[in-house]
Computed example of a mutant assay.
Amino acid sequence: MPAQPAAHAPIPPEVRRQAAAWLVELQSDGAGEQTRLDWQAWRAAHPDHERAWQRIEALGTKLQALQPGLAHAALASAGSPGRRRVVQGLAVALFAGGLAWAAQDRVPWRQWVADRRTGVGERATITLPDGTRVDLNSDSAVDIAFTDTERVLRLAAGEILVATAPDSHTPVRPFFVQTAEGRLQPLGTRFSVRQVARGESAVAVYEGAVRVQPRQGSALVLNAGQQASFTTARVNQPGAADEADTAWVQGMIVAQDMPLGDFIAELARHHPGWLGCAPSVADLKVTGTYPVDDTMKVLDMLTRTLPVQVRLRTRFWASVEPRGEDE
């Protein structure tokens, strides 16, 4: 028998990866009795294996934060590059300790292992295998899963603008965009999808139509010129879509009487660090076209047109506040 490792000894990296792989495998639709028997045999094969699995079980309710990512991973083909990336990222999240869990809200592990991603202040354009064009906004991440039966783009974080292309595959495969809250099926269209916040996504349709299907609620079809947010339970009341909201593709924010608080929230998506707005000036109106590639220049422009000042505490901490007499 192998020697018993000390209880506090580090779990070998390969064992961590294997444990993460088993966690994904047990979530997949194909997991049956034989899978569970193989998993139990793996646990019994070495004390390190059992220690790794006990570490996972000890996480308890923390594992709930990983469920959306686990579901995405389980849908990927066994042995595929996408699943390997997820397993590697999951191994880091499971065994890196408290700091990794504390950072979940700021840098979700699903973003670390996404097929394509952009950093803060970066944008990218990709062309999918079927010719569909996808623009990624700042701090965004997507997974691409094309099979013989469907084309799926999974939004892990941020915002994308999608212009679908006809599928040359036979038979023609439906195209879907999947978020944490539900699934969107475009009907020959151009549309944007944004992960607004935890528990809410938003879609805006500029051409064609999009069928919005929350995970647990009734579906709704949005036509060109409509936008709506949705949760896992329902699609909220549709409103008017504004083409100006896609100006980020050209590296711009277009504002027309936009409340300063909302404007700063948009600009903060492109700013390397924390950027806030004091409530006392949040209702001031902003109008104009502003480049997002130089956020400090935009902030300087605001101080020239509005009664505000920018307070810098560090290079990565800025706040827009009322203009004071001590400037």
Rank of each mutant, 00 (worst) to 15 (best):
Leu260Asp: 05
Ala93Thr: 13
Ala244Lys: 12
Trp109Leu: 13
Phe95Val: 08
Val162Ala: 06
Glu327Cys: 09
Arg269Ser: 01
Pro279Asp: 09
Ser319Trp: 07
Val203Arg: 02
Gly60His: 08
Thr61Ser: 14
Val212Lys: 04
Ala41Arg: 14
Gln227Phe: 00
Val310Glu: 02
Ala65Arg: 14
Pro81Leu: 08
Ser319Ile: 11
Ala73Thr: 14
Gly324Ser: 15
Ser80Ala: 13
Asp326Thr: 08
Ala91Arg: 09
Pro47Met: 14
Ala44Cys: 09
Leu184Gln: 03
Ala3Cys: 02
Gly273Lys: 02
Pro5Trp: 03
Arg311Lys: 10
Ala202Pro: 05
Pro2Ile: 02
Gln216Trp: 01
Arg123Val: 09
Glu33Phe: 04
Trp248Tyr: 11
Pro13Met: 02
Trp42Val: 05
Arg116Trp: 07
Ala228His: 08
Val152Pro: 00
Arg51Ala: 10
Leu75Thr: 14
Ala31Ile: 06
Val15Leu: 05
Ala282Pro: 06
Leu26Phe: 11
Ala74Leu: 11
Thr132Leu: 07
Arg194Phe: 02
Asp300Phe: 07
Met252Leu: 15
Ala247His: 06
Leu275Pro: 03
Leu161Tyr: 12
Gln237Asp: 12
Ala73Ile: 14
Gly217Lys: 12
Val24Asp: 06
Thr149Asn: 15
Asp115Tyr: 01
Glu200Arg: 13
Gln309Phe: 00
Ala145Gln: 11
Ser28Gln: 07
Met252Arg: 15
Leu220His: 12
Pro174Val: 13
Met296Val: 09
Arg234Met: 07
Gly276Gln: 08
Leu63Met: 14
Gly217Arg: 05
Arg173Ala: 00
Asp257Pro: 01
